[in-house]
Simulated assay, not measured.
Amino acid sequence: MSALLLQAPPVAAADGSAVGPEGQRLAVSRSSGLDPAGETVTVTGSGYNTEKGVYVAFCVDNGAGKTPTPCVGGVDMSGESGASVWVSSDPPSYGEGLAKPYGGSGHGGTFEVRIKVRAKDANTDCAAAGVTCAVITRNDHTRGGDQSQTVRVPVTFANAGGSSSGSGSAKPSASATAGADATGGSGDGGATETDDGSMASTGSGLVLPLGLCAAGLVAVGTGAWLWARRRRTAAPSSS
């Protein structure tokens, strides 16, 4: 009598987790009904290639094969905002002490980090209709265009009535694509990202000098008017 072989059914990823293209597993402590104003979640990963650094962030999901971008709060190159974490066991010299190293080795890299997830910033609204955002991993700027470690866990937010929002299609709306070539961010300047994942400056530092110039022109104009008025007042009347 031949033995009956039963094949185990595939295991679907539970809510709050996803499997990557090379078997990486990404899990988020909470992925639905989050506070739109911001909520800190724990993100864990396993099965990552430790030779490739990744960003852990919250970004617009642009679909399979495309880099998730822009990211709410930007990709944090300073390590100060809490909006993202850079994980790398072999970062460039400027990343030493900033990037968090993997646990494990080879293709068994692990990490556990915490990031703050919020619905929107000055450039991106993840609660808008038609916008899907996710907690993601993606290869860092040293490997632009390499999607081998892009993994997504979709996130939804609670609205005023207590239900969830932000679970539309993966195609971003106009509110998301307005800064689609950048990482998002608060609009205060800093690093943005080009299509290949490399970093570039925003040029938004021009705002302050322009403001100062405007204030200076107003001051000069006011001073000239007062000077002319004093001259007219002090001039002797004709006899």
Rank of each mutant, 00 (worst) to 15 (best):
C133N: 03
V75W: 15
G103P: 05
S239N: 09
S237L: 13
M199A: 11
T137C: 00
G161K: 14
T194Y: 07
P21H: 07
G104R: 06
A14P: 06
V113N: 03
P70S: 06
G63Q: 06
V220C: 05
V60D: 07
A200N: 10
L208V: 12
T222D: 04
G197H: 05
V131F: 03
A64Y: 07
T124E: 06
T44W: 00
W86E: 06
C213W: 12
A170K: 15
S17A: 15
E112H: 07
Q24E: 15
G65A: 10
K120C: 05
T132F: 01
L217Q: 09
V220K: 00
D125M: 03
G109I: 02
E51S: 15
A174R: 12
T150M: 11
R118W: 03
V207P: 00
G16T: 02
K66L: 13
G65H: 08
T42M: 03
G216V: 01
G65D: 08
G205S: 12
T50R: 06
G47V: 06
A228D: 08
D121A: 03
S88Q: 03
V218W: 02
S204A: 12
L4E: 15
G16M: 10
S32D: 11
A170G: 14
G38P: 04
G223Q: 10
V85Q: 15
A228W: 14
D146G: 06
R152T: 14
G79N: 12
S201V: 12
P92I: 05
L206H: 10
N62L: 11
G144F: 04
V19P: 01
V113E: 06
G187T: 05
R30H: 06
A134M: 05
A99L: 04
A99G: 01
G23H: 07
L5G: 07
R143L: 11
T124S: 12
A214R: 05
G205E: 15
G16I: 07
E22W: 02
A129H: 03
F157I: 06
S186P: 02
V155A: 01
G144M: 06
S32C: 07
Q147P: 12
W227K: 10
T142A: 14
G20W: 04
G74V: 03
Q149G: 10
T222H: 08
K171Y: 10
R30P: 01
I115Y: 09
S17C: 05
G53Q: 01
S238W: 07
A224N: 00
W86M: 08
V151Y: 08
G184V: 08
V151D: 02
V11L: 13
V113A: 08
K171I: 08
A14E: 13
A234L: 11
S31M: 01
Q149E: 14
G38I: 09
V220P: 00
S175Y: 07
P92C: 04
V11R: 13
S32E: 09
R152V: 11
S81G: 11
G47E: 02
N123D: 12
A191Y: 12
T233N: 07
S17M: 08
G168D: 04
S29C: 01
S164F: 02
V43L: 07
A178D: 03
H107C: 00
S204N: 14
T44S: 15
S201Q: 13
R229S: 13
H107R: 13
K52D: 05
E80H: 11
G185V: 04
D61S: 10
T222I: 08
A215C: 08
S81E: 02
V131G: 00
I115W: 03
S31D: 11
G47S: 04
A8W: 01
P10S: 09
